[in-house]
Amino acid sequence: MAELSEFPIEVHEAASAPASTQNVVPLLHEIRHALTKLLQSDESTTIDLLSIPMTDADLQALEEALGNGEIDTTITALGTSRIRETRYPGVWLIEHYNVADSLMAKFIEVTRLPEILKADPRDIDAGLQRLSEQLSNNEPDETD
């Protein structure tokens, strides 16, 4: 039987990339508007990028327009999440991946600090208990 690699397969590259949806510039204006609102009334804005029809090229153009800022961090909870501040302070790019590493949600958040980065009191409490337990377990070792 013929191997798969023996079949003559011709691959034609698409002549041109899918057309741009022209959504990048209006989005940047929306971000500018959100930043003004954040400064004036401390009001945060979130934009769901997956709800806006955009080609991969559009998304890339948007990311290039926003650039990289001072913070680039990863959360590991139910898969990874990447939180980046862009070159415009207060504008964050948030990507949530699942355990299989496929993108589930992508937002632009215009805020001082994304809510998800803050530690939650219930998690702090659970952590405090773990630390206390660990310390009380370790104490006998130190007195030895």
């Binding site: 909870a77 948030i94 949530h96 699942n98 998690d123």
Partner: peptide, 19 residues
């Protein structure tokens, strides 16, 4: 054992999924 961050992420993805 799912943390609050995991839960918030779940909620964000759910809201996005529900459009």
């Amino acid at each position: 054992g799912i943390s609050r961050r995991g839960f918030l992420k779940f909620c964000a993805a759910t809201a996005s999924m529900m459009a």
